[in-house]
Structures are given as C-alpha cells and as structure tokens.
C-alpha cells in the first residue's frame, strides 16, 4: 500500500482565531497546564486580537501554529537518539517522550517558534486527573512534546480533534498524496502559503488565503 502523506489545510479566510482548536488539543491530548501544542496567533498588532495598520486602515488575521509535520523535518535530523522520527507510512512526525533525553536540540532545530514544548517541571493538571482521550500521549517531566496530528485518532480512522471541532470549518485534514482528497483539491485550487517555506523544511500544513 502506498504511503500516505497526511497534511492539514487551514483556511485563513474562515479562521476567526477563536482558540477552539487550541483548547481542543489541550483536552484531547490531556496537555499539562501551560502547555499548548497548537496556538492561535493574531497576525496583526502587538497583542492578541489587535490589528496592524493605522485607523481606519486596519488589517488583522489569524493563523494557528503547531508542528508542521515537515517532509524534511529539522527536528528528526538532530535528535541524537531518534526520540523524534517521521512515520513513513503517514508522514506524521512523532515524538516519543519515553526515549527523549531532554536535550532540547529538536526545539533548537525547529524553525517553527514554540511548536515543541519541553516539560521543564513535573507536569500538572488543573483537574487533578487525566482527561481527554484514553490513548492520549503521555507527558513526562524533562521531555519534549508536540502535536502528533492526533495520531492516536488517525490510526482509528478519526480526524485530528482540532479539525473535528473547528467552529469555523476552517481546518481540513487528509492525504496529500491522494490527488482526489479534499486537502489536495484545496491546495490545488486555492491560493495558499506554507510557513517559512524558505527554510526548506517542506511543511505539511497549508494555509489558504
């Protein structure tokens, strides 16, 4: 069976920066307090939900930023122990906390600011118990973690949780190797960009404009 190349397509025309995907990620993956794998960012002024420009000529938009599951991932190349690797069958870049040395080289290597997070201390949870999916990734002190495209859901044939919940219907997920897939069609037919394309990492996340 041909390998898949899972990718995400985010429609910035639809995205309203509501943070639902970010919170969904926290819930589904039982993320520790203060830990965000998927952040909603305002492309505009200095603060969240503020525009760029001078009144009344203003501009404001949003992107969400998580692991870009690059085809040429900088993180995988530098990990000294293979704790982060690219799954050949799906194109998903995985991260295994149980193998991680905690050297943070992957965080240094990744050009996408802040998509990898290190558990600097013992993870804490406001609810006091594990929430989200039963097969949510584990979270270990002194290890690096990041978005897995909800691989635990993908293996069950489900969409990443952030895609399922998006109130704006701005997020799409699918196989970029399949020219008929919704994501391939969107990328084919809509103008788009990828983040930091000049870095040559070949990210698998597309932003429609």
């Amino acid at each position: 069976m041909a390998n898949k190349h899972y990718g995400m397509v985010i429609d910035t025309k639809r995205c309203i920066g509501c943070h639902t995907c970010s919170v969904a990620c926290k819930l589904e993956n039982n993320l520790p307090d203060k830990n965000w794998w998927n952040r909603t960012l305002t492309v505009g002024g200095e603060d969240m939900d503020t525009p760029a420009g001078v009144f009344p000529n203003l501009k404001m938009g949003f992107i969400t930023l998580a692991c870009q599951h690059c085809e040429n991932p900088a993180c995988v190349k530098v990990c000294p122990v293979g704790a982060t690797w690219k799954d050949e069958a799906t194109g998903i870049v995985m991260q295994d906390p149980s193998k991680c040395l905690g050297c943070r080289y992957c965080m240094v290597a990744c050009p996408y600011t802040g998509v990898r997070e290190f558990n600097f201390e013992e993870p804490t949870y406001a609810t006091g118990f594990a929430v989200g999916s039963i097969d949510a990734p584990i979270h270990e002190k002194s290890t690096v973690e990041k978005c897995t495209f909800c691989a635990h859901r993908v293996v069950k044939g489900e969409l990443p949780f952030c895609v399922e919940v998006c109130p704006a219907r701005a997020r799409h997920f699918g196989d970029l190797n399949d020219p008929e897939s919704e994501v391939s069609q969107l990328v084919l037919n809509r103008s788009h960009f990828r983040l930091l394309e000049e870095k040559g990492t070949e990210p698998s996340v597309y932003f429609l404009t």
């Binding site: 069976m1 390998n3 898949k4 293979g82 690797w85 799954d87 050949e88 069958a89 799906t90 998903i92 995985m94 295994d96 149980s98 097969d135 990734p137 691989a151 635990h152 993908v154 293996v155 069950k156 044939g157 489900e158 969409l159 895609v163 399922e164 997920f173 699918g174 196989d175 399949d178 897939s181 919704e182």
Partner: peptide, 30 residues
C-alpha cells in the same frame, strides 16, 4: 467530516505499515 478517514481507509493503511516497518512506526500508539 468525521467519517472521512474511515472512508479513505486510513486505519487499514496505518495498521499495515505499523506491522511492516523497521522503524518504530507509531509503535507507542499500537
């Protein structure tokens, strides 16, 4: 939306490769 991946047969695909690959492909997940 929700059935999308099921329709595309992702489960079978991933499972097959999980078994076949040399690398620790999605092993923790398995």
């Amino acid at each position: 939306r929700r059935d999308f991946l099921k329709v595309s047969g992702a489960t079978a695909g991933v499972a097959a490769v999980v078994g076949a690959s040399r690398r620790p492909v999605l092993r923790t997940l398995e």
